[in-house]
Simulated assay, not measured.
Amino acid sequence: MIGCLFIHGFTGSPWEVEPLMEYIQENTNWTIACPVLPGHEEGGSLKGVSYTEWLDAASKALDELQRHCDTIYLIGFSMGGMIASTLAVNQPIDKLVLLSPAVFYYSPKQLSVELRALMQEMLQGKLKENALYIRYHAKIKHTPISAAMQFRKLVRNYRPHLPDISMPVFIAHGLQDGIVHYKSTQYLYDTVASKDKTALWLDGCNHLICHCENNEWLFKQVHEFLCK
């Protein structure tokens, strides 16, 4: 049996990868799991939460999936990509998918472009319908500095282990990503030891790559990679 573990991003939730999860569920009979990382629960707080708690939660979900499945695929989004990469180094994983992986964090230039677009939507009365607005608003309002530091610790401590990744890897990034610079995907592609690796850059996509207009095409590429 095949198990597919999804890991969401920093300050995020399974909603970030939900469209891809639904696509996989509709086109396979695989077992799907996506834990909510500590502090990311609805109404929860990231204050005082350590990055090791995020790793432990993902590791426990992986252990549970391994009890029922003999083939394991990991799909990590943003910070979840770093967590998935860390698990892949230390666990027997068959394939790894990294979406908007947060090897390098924050692109000020593109973020300013996106925020200007949000301002235009605000003038049109559509701001509250925008997923990016909802995400940025939540970050600004609820994310303590200590949590951001924990995220950076995670990246800093585990980026040196990326060359140890040897299983097949699929990486995708939006060229208009204003949160994680798309150079992260090139860095990963150049750094991992895997001989079977694919990297895609999608024009017209921002950080929330599973919710972009090209997501159906992206999902097909992910599905073909996992099934080949």
Results as ranks from 00 to 15, higher is better:
residue 3 G to W: 03
residue 13 S to E: 01
residue 15 W to T: 10
residue 17 V to C: 09
residue 21 M to Q: 13
residue 21 M to T: 00
residue 22 E to A: 15
residue 23 Y to V: 02
residue 25 Q to A: 15
residue 25 Q to F: 01
residue 26 E to A: 15
residue 28 T to Y: 12
residue 29 N to H: 11
residue 31 T to D: 12
residue 32 I to R: 08
residue 33 A to H: 02
residue 34 C to V: 14
residue 35 P to M: 09
residue 37 L to N: 09
residue 39 G to L: 04
residue 41 E to Q: 15
residue 42 E to Q: 13
residue 44 G to H: 06
residue 45 S to H: 07
residue 47 K to T: 09
residue 47 K to F: 07
residue 49 V to K: 14
residue 49 V to S: 05
residue 53 E to F: 01
residue 54 W to V: 10
residue 56 D to Y: 14
residue 59 S to K: 14
residue 70 D to F: 05
residue 72 I to C: 06
residue 73 Y to I: 07
residue 73 Y to M: 00
residue 75 I to D: 04
residue 82 M to V: 14
residue 86 T to C: 09
residue 86 T to P: 03
residue 87 L to F: 06
residue 91 Q to T: 08
residue 92 P to K: 13
residue 93 I to Q: 05
residue 95 K to D: 04
residue 95 K to W: 04
residue 97 V to Y: 02
residue 109 K to S: 11
residue 113 V to C: 03
residue 114 E to V: 01
residue 115 L to R: 15
residue 117 A to H: 09
residue 123 L to Y: 11
residue 124 Q to S: 11
residue 128 K to C: 02
residue 131 A to N: 09
residue 133 Y to A: 11
residue 134 I to D: 07
residue 134 I to E: 08
residue 135 R to Y: 12
residue 136 Y to H: 06
residue 140 I to R: 11
residue 152 R to H: 13
residue 157 N to V: 03
residue 159 R to V: 14
residue 159 R to E: 13
residue 163 P to W: 09
residue 164 D to C: 07
residue 165 I to L: 11
residue 183 K to Y: 10
residue 190 D to W: 03
residue 192 V to T: 04
residue 199 A to S: 15
residue 199 A to F: 04
residue 200 L to M: 10
residue 201 W to G: 04
residue 203 D to G: 08
residue 209 I to M: 08
residue 210 C to E: 00
residue 212 C to R: 14
residue 212 C to K: 13
residue 213 E to H: 14
residue 215 N to Q: 12
residue 218 L to M: 11
residue 225 F to T: 07
